[in-house]
Amino acid sequence: MNREARQALALAGVFQAAAVVDELARTGHADERAWQTLVRATIDTQPETFESIYGGNHNNLRLGIETLDTVLSRGQMAPNVMRYGFSMVLLMQKLRKQPQMMSTLSERLDRVNDQARHFGDTHENVIASLGQIYQDTLSTFRYRVVVNGDPSLLQSRMMPERVRTGLLSGVRFALLWHQQGGRRWKLVLGRSGLRRALASID
C-alpha cells in the first residue's frame, strides 16, 4: 500500500469517527463494526503494522471511506459530520503542540488496553475510561467540539462517554494521518489525489 492510500485510509478513520458521533447523537445507535474498529484503533497504541490499526480489512473503515469520498466530491453531506471531521483534525494539531499531554494520553491508553484485554474492547468500563481520558485531556483546550443531537439521548446513560470516545478515536486517526504525511492544505488542494487513493483501495 502506497503512502497516499495510507493517508486516505487514516483520514477515512477520522470521518468514520465523525459519522459515528453524529449517528450516536441523533439516534443513540451506531454501526457496530464501525464502532468496534474505532475503539480498537484507539486503545491499540503499538500496532504491529499500519493495517493492523483497523483490523487488517479496509471494509472495517467502509463507513469512513464512503463518508470521506462524499466530503471530497462535495456531495450531499450532513453539515455536522463535516464539522466534526475537520474539528478533530484541528484538535490533533493542538495536541501535537502539547508533548506532555501526548505522553499522558499514551500512558493512560496503555492502561485501558490492559482493561480491554480483561473486559473486551467495547465493554462499558473501557468506554467510560476512554471518555474520561478525552474529558481530562482534549476537552481542556479552549477549542471544543460541540456535538449536536437529541438532548435527551446526549444525556442518557453512557452516551456522553460514547460520544467522547468517538471524538478521541477521530483524533487518534488524525494523528495517524499526520504521521503518514497528511496535511490540512491537502484537504483543500489535494482532493482529487485523495479520491484516487480511496478508489485504489477497493
Rank of each mutant, 00 (worst) to 15 (best):
D22V: 09
D114G: 10
Q98W: 03
N57T: 05
Q7I: 14
L38Q: 06
Q135P: 01
E48S: 12
V81A: 03
G13F: 07
G13W: 02
D69C: 04
L138E: 12
A41P: 00
V126D: 03
N2A: 03
R111M: 14
L176M: 08
A12M: 08
D121P: 00
H58D: 09
A5D: 10
S156Q: 14
A34I: 09
R62D: 08
Q115A: 06
L90R: 08
M159V: 13
T37G: 02
N148H: 13
Q135N: 10
L61K: 13
Y134C: 12
I65V: 12
W35C: 04
Q100L: 11
E51H: 07
D114C: 07
R144N: 14
E48V: 14
V21K: 06
L63D: 01
R62W: 02
D114W: 03
Q132C: 00
D114L: 15
V20D: 07
R164V: 06
M82N: 02
V14W: 06
M88T: 12
R74V: 02
T42Y: 02
A25T: 06
G170K: 04
S129N: 04
M77K: 01
L91T: 14
V81W: 01
V188E: 08
R196E: 14
V147L: 09
A19M: 06
S169W: 03
E48K: 15
T140F: 08
A25C: 12
R162H: 09
N2G: 15
V39I: 15
V163S: 08
G28D: 10
Y54E: 01
Q180I: 00
S156V: 00
L175Q: 15
L90Y: 12
Y84H: 11
F15N: 09
G149Y: 13
P47N: 08
L24Q: 05
F15R: 09
Q7T: 09
F50A: 06
K97H: 10
L198E: 11
P99Q: 13
A128P: 05
L38W: 06
H58V: 09
H123N: 14
R6N: 12
V171A: 06
V21W: 04
N2Q: 05
R144Q: 15
E4S: 15
V126A: 00
V89Q: 05
P160T: 07
L109Y: 02
A78N: 06
R183T: 08
Q100V: 10
L175N: 12
E32Y: 05
L105A: 06
R6Y: 11
H58R: 15
I43S: 02
R26N: 10
A116M: 08
G85I: 07
M101T: 14
F119S: 09
R162G: 04
K94Y: 10
K97F: 03
A78K: 08
S200W: 03
Q7P: 00
V21Q: 03
Y143E: 04
A197L: 10
S139Q: 15
Q7W: 05
Y143L: 12
Q132G: 04
A25M: 11
T45N: 05
R40S: 11
R195T: 10
E51P: 00
Y134K: 07
M159S: 07
L176Q: 11
F173Y: 14
L95R: 11
R117A: 12
V89N: 05
Q46P: 01
S152F: 11
L38T: 01
G120M: 07
L187K: 02
L154V: 04
Y54W: 11
A116W: 05
L9D: 11
G120R: 08
W185D: 13
T122R: 08
G181Q: 10
T137S: 14
